[in-house]
Design a protein around this nucleic acid. Structure first.
Lengths: 250, 250
DNA sequence: TGTTTATGAAAGAAAATGATTGAAATTGAT
DNA sequence: ATCAATTTCAATCATTTTCTTTCATAAACA
C-alpha cells in the first residue's frame, strides 16, 4: 500500500465519520500504527485533518468533548442515572433501537461500546448520535413537530427493515391494569412494533410514571425490563409479579 | 512496446485507479521498473500525472467532495438566487421531494406556498422545515455523517412510498457526455429514484458545476430542468440541445 | 561505421516501514 | 484532588523498499 493511497483512504474515512481511530485506519490499510501516525502528522501539516488523541478529526467541524460530560456524571439526576445504566447494557457490536424521547436521548452520551448501530425515529436523537460518531439509521416517516418523532406508515415500514439486539423505549404510563401507555396512538404503534422486533426490551421511565395510564396502549408490562430510579417497596412488590424491574441506585 | 504506447497505458491505468504502483505498470507493459520510472518522470514534466513514492497519482482531484462548509461558503449568493427562484415554482398543495444538500436547503426559507408537503433525505433540511412549520416526511435510511444525508436501502425503500409533484435535486457535475453526476454512488442512487417518482424534475446547480463530471452517474441531462445562475452563452447553446436550462437572473 | 536512442541491470542514496522504548495523556477509582 | 493503570504518543533504530545515477548493451538510423 502506497503512502498516497493511504492518505486518500484516511481522508475518505474522515468524510464518512468525523473522527477515526488510529486502530481503525491501521486495520483498513493493513499497516502499522507507526505508519498511520506518520501519515496523520503529515496530513495535519497539510491542513487536511486535525490530530486528536487516539486518532484524527476532520477539520472545520466542531465536536463536543466527552470527558466533560462524564465528569458531570457525578451530579446525575434521575433521568441521567437511568440513562447511564441503560447505556451500560449496550455491548460492542449491538444493534439498538432508540425510541424518540428525552430519557432515551440521555442514553446516547453514555454509550461506551464500540461498533454500535442505532436505529431511531427521533430527530433529536440523530443529532446527538451524529456528534458521537455512532452509526445511525432512521426509520423515516412523518415528522410530528411537537415531539420531533417520526411516525405513521412511513416510520412503520422503515422500522420493519431491521431487527434489534436491544431496544430502549420511553413510556408515559406504567399501570398494573393498563400496561404500558403513551398519549399518542401513532407513537404507541411504532413503539409496539419496535418491541416485537427486538431480542431484549428495556422500558426507561422515571418513578413518576408508575400507576399512571395514558390514552394509547403500547404493550403489556411483561414485554420487557423496566429501568427506573426509585420505587416504593410496596409498588415494587405489586409490579414485580407482572414484570421485571431494575431499580438504578444512585 | 513503444514508449508512447506505454505512456498511453499508464494514463489509462490512472483513469481507472487514482493511484498505480510501479510494479503494476511494469507488469502490465512487460518492461522493467527502470523504464517505467523514466516514463513517469517524463509524464510528470508534461503535467500528465504526479509521481509519488512507489508509483504515480492522477493529477485531477475530481473525487474530492468539498465539505458542506466549503461549498456553502463559496457560492452562497448564487445559491440563494437559485433557491429563491426554485421556491417560487412550488404551488399550494404541492408534494415536493427535496434532496439533501446546501442549495436545496436554501430553498426552504423562500417557500411561500401553503399546505405544502415535503419529503427529504437530508437531516439539515428537516430542522429547517420544522422551523417553517411545513409538513415534513423523511425517507429514513443510513445517516452519512459528512453530508448529513440519509442513504442506502432504507432510504430507497422509504422514498418509494411517495410520488411527487415536483422534486429539487442537487448535483455536483453537469456534463454533456457524462450527464448529471455526484461523488457518492449511494447518493446518486437515491437522487435517481426521486427523479423517476416525480412529475416535474428540477436540477439546482450553480454555474461552476457545468462541464464537470464526478464519480457517480445520476441521470441524463434531459431528465429535468436545470436551474442555475449564469452560464456562458456558448455553454448554453451546447447544452440547450440536450436539456432545458433556466438561468436565474439577479 | 559511427551516432543516437531506448533499455535493463547494478550500486549506493533516499524514503518508507514496523518494532521498541520511555514519555505523556487519558481514564477510573479512591 | 490525587494516584495507579491503561492507552497513546514521539523518538529512534534496523530492515525493507524504492529512487537516482551510472554503465553496458542493443536496436534504429544516417
Amino acid at each position: 500500500m502506497l503512502t498516497e493511497e493511504r492518505h486518500l483512504i484516511i481522508l475518505q474515512l474522515l468524510k464518512e465519520k468525523e473522527i477515526v481511530k488510529i486502530q481503525e485506519i491501521a486495520e483498513a490499510t493493513n499497516s502499522s500504527e507507526s505508519t498511520i501516525r506518520r501519515d496523520l502528522s503529515q496530513l495535519e501539516l497539510e491542513k487536511k485533518l486535525k490530530r486528536v488523541h487516539g486518532g484524527a478529526a476532520s477539520v472545520s467541524q466542531k465536536r463536543n468533548e466527552l470527558s466533560m460530560m462524564e465528569k458531570s456524571a457525578r451530579f446525575l439526576n434521575e433521568k441521567k442515572r437511568i440513562a447511564k445504566y441503560a447505556a451500560s447494557l449496550i455491548q460492542d457490536g449491538d444493534c439498538i433501537y432508540l425510541d424518540a424521547g428525552t430519557t432515551t436521548l440521555e442514553i446516547i452520551p453514555f454509550i461506551k461500546a464500540n461498533d454500535v448501530t442505532v436505529v431511531t425515529n427521533g430527530l433529536t436523537n440523530v443529532e446527538s448520535l451524529l456528534s458521537r460518531g455512532i452509526q445511525t439509521y432512521m426509520t423515516g416517516g412523518m415528522l410530528k413537530p411537537k415531539t420531533k418523532a417520526f411516525i405513521g406508515r412511513g416510520a412503520w415500514l422503515g422500522l420493519q427493515q431491521y431487527n434489534f439486539d436491544k431496544c430502549f423505549i420511553g413510556v408515559n404510563g406504567i399501570h398494573y391494569e393498563s400496561g404500558l401507555t403513551t398519549p399518542d396512538p401513532e407513537e404507541a404503534f411504532i413503539k409496539k412494533q419496535a418491541i416485537t422486533q427486538s431480542q431484549e426490551v428495556f422500558i426507561v421511565a422515571d418513578s413518576s410514571k408508575f400507576n399512571q395510564s395514558t390514552f394509547a396502549y403500547i404493550a403489556s408490562l411483561k414485554s420487557g425490563t423496566i429501568l427506573t430510579d426509585e420505587v416504593d417497596s410496596e409498588l415494587l412488590t405489586v409490579y414485580q409479579d407482572q414484570t421485571t424491574i431494575k431499580v438504578v441506585n444512585p
